[in-house]
């Protein structure tokens, strides 16, 4: 990790304006904008959870949406099929994702590199297929709908503020994880597992802990998304959502905590606004991804870091 991130202190001078700015936007803009901001915030959490695996844990998962989907169905199924109260569903969503990540992670961390990636993909396809095929329980491709009022029946601006609070708390927790002993272990094992093992670490156990933390936070994002939409569809666990999150992390910047945040903001806004004017919005995203990989492999966060250093040198 870059030394700038090594202090461990939360960068409040960046966090506070960002949170206040998001609150100000929610308060002043209309309901439509509030919906977009909420979407962005949920994707920030989803992408940041994947970032823990890719940037810190050295694990490129091609199945991260499985936990997003489990978070959504963990909420929707108990409410729709068992008639459980909302609070139970809100707890069961992330719990389902955590248990799914524990079971799948225990299998996947036995492999490395492309084999790890392929196994995560295979496991997420199994989750997707179950959600898609178990029609009697999950509604199949028609999903689970009308089990609750979208956004808890709240004004989109109020729900946006609630999501902002939850996402901020989760990112703070994620930051604490990264700067804690387990975070250091995740970074060490992610970079050089043989060295870590020769120092007494159990690489698979450390990787599994990272996998479960990332899966649980993706589950929180999935639960928030299901509440936001008032529905749950198998696509939430599909490869499309995983690729979205991977693209966000790469555009935002690998090896940076803020990478998931930048990437989710840019990607979701582009997807929302460019798709209104250009049918082939994926082409625009593809070109941006191409430019990032070629010009700034460290993504937007890396580019901003270099710019900051350059400006610092000029003013010195």
């Amino acid at each position: 990790m870059r030394p700038a991130e090594s202090s461990g202190a939360v960068q409040w001078r960046l966090v506070v304006p960002a949170v206040l700015g998001a609150l100000a936007l929610l308060a002043t803009l209309g309901q439509g904008a509030a919906l977009v901001i909420t979407d962005v915030l949920i994707m920030v959490l989803f992408a940041s959870s994947l970032n823990l695996l890719t940037s810190y844990g050295g694990m490129v998962s091609f199945g991260h949406a499985a936990y997003f989907g489990l978070g959504a169905y963990g909420l929707a199924l108990p409410l729709a099929k068992l008639g459980l109260p909302l609070w139970a569903g809100l707890a069961l969503g992330p719990l389902a994702a955590a248990l799914g990540a524990l079971a799948i992670g225990a299998l996947c961390v036995r492999l490395t590199h492309i084999y790890f990636a392929m196994l995560t993909l295979a496991c997420s396809e199994i989750v997707f297929t179950i959600l898609f095929q178990a029609y009697d329980y999950t509604g199949g491709d028609t999903g689970i709908t009308k089990f609750m009022a979208p956004r808890l029946g709240l004004d989109p601006r109020l729900y946006g503020a609630l999501v902002l609070a939850i996402v901020s708390a989760c990112l703070l927790l994620l930051w604490k994880v990264v700067r804690s002993p387990i975070g250091l272990a995740i970074r060490a094992v992610g970079e050089e597992p043989h060295r870590a093992a020769a120092l007494g670490y159990s690489p698979r156990m450390v990787q599994l802990v990272a996998f479960v933390i990332a899966g649980t936070l993706a589950g929180v994002a999935g639960t928030l998304f299901a509440v936001y939409q008032g529905n749950a569809f198998p696509d939430y666990a599909g490869i499309g959502f995983t690729i979205d999150a991977l693209v966000m992390v790469v555009i935002g910047g690998l090896h940076s905590f803020a990478g998931g945040v930048y990437g989710a903001v840019i990607y979701t806004l582009l997807k929302t606004f460019v798709s209104r004017y250009v049918t082939e919005w994926e082409l625009v995203i593809g070109l941006i991804l191409l430019a990032v990989v070629l010009v700034s492999p460290a993504g937007v966060a890396g580019g901003l870091g270099r710019l900051g250093h350059a400006l610092g040198r000029r003013s010195a």
């Binding site: 090594s6 002993p181 272990a185 970074r187 050089e192």
Partner: peptide, 19 residues
Amino acid sequence: RTFRKLTVLENMLAALLGN
């Protein structure tokens, strides 16, 4: 084999933690 992206101090911290 060291943790090249970690600082030198973090490398040593990681060693002490592992042990």
